[in-house]
């Protein structure tokens, strides 16, 4: 009975919202023209990177803060010490060892490419995190326990750098308004910091969580 009711409600939702989407008129606000007009002053030539780190840099700043808070919450609810890593088959370990330098190279390429083509700090950080997870799964990288000073610095470096630059540039008038001449360099510096921190944070989501792996068996 409940199933039927939920099914009918979901169908009604899809029909009504879908119908509204199809009949929707042209958008009242279109930011495409503004983005294209300001692109030259943003310091990068790829519009998505320009929006992420220049026009809407505020969102990205807060997003990194959200990631850090999520990681802190995860640290608060997992309290077991890391279990000793279980080594995988030597062949798998060799493949992981071989793949890691290539993945780091891909991350650096994505970071560099973000200025003028698809890529950027998020994708580069994700590739770094994937390399760490791969090393952990084959038993070469132990799960993380309570983070030490170096790890803490690495986790917060991107956010701290971003925040420090935002504070230093407050004299420009608005938050995160870069001087046009230096915008390209500033964005690259921020993205490099974000790549390292995002890689560590995303890897931490896995490596802090998986430490109670096998603890019970």
């Amino acid at each position: 009975m409940k199933r039927l009711a939920v099914f009918c409600l979901a169908c009604a939702f899809v029909v009504l919202t879908g119908g509204a989407l199809i009949e929707l008129g042209p958008a009242a606000i279109d930011l495409r023209g503004q983005v294209a007009a300001q692109l030259a002053a943003s310091g990068v030539s790829h519009p998505v990177t320009a929006v992420l780190l220049n026009f809407r840099g505020y969102d990205t700043l807060l997003e990194v803060a959200v990631l850090l808070i999520a990681l802190l919450a995860i640290l608060a609810v997992t309290d077991k010490p890391p279990a000793a890593p279980v080594p995988a088959h030597p062949l798998l370990q060799a493949v992981a060892r071989g793949a890691t330098p290539a993945m780091i190279l891909v991350a650096v390429y994505l970071l560099w490419a973000g200025a003028h083509r698809p890529g950027g700090a998020f994708q580069a950080g994700a590739v770094l995190a994937a390399a760490a997870v791969l090393l952990h799964l084959v038993g070469l990288l132990p799960g993380w326990g309570a983070p030490g000073l170096r790890l803490r610095l690495g986790l917060t470096a991107g956010f701290a750098l971003f925040l420090a630059l935002a504070a230093a540039l407050l004299s420009q008038g608005a938050l995160l308004q870069y001087p046009p001449a230096a915008a390209g360099t500033l964005i690259l510096v921020i993205e490099a910091g974000l790549t390292v921190s995002l890689g560590l944070i995303l890897a931490g989501l896995f490596l802090f969580l998986s430490r109670d792996e096998g603890g019970e068996t």
Binding site: V48, P118, Q123, A130, V133, S210
Partner: peptide, 20 residues
């Protein structure tokens, strides 16, 4: 950009987290 992020994060990292 989203395709790259989705392949690495949405499919890769989320999948690893869920399976773990």
């Amino acid at each position: 950009d989203i395709a790259l992020a989705e392949a690495a994060i949405g499919a890769g990292l989320t999948g690893a987290l869920l399976l773990d």
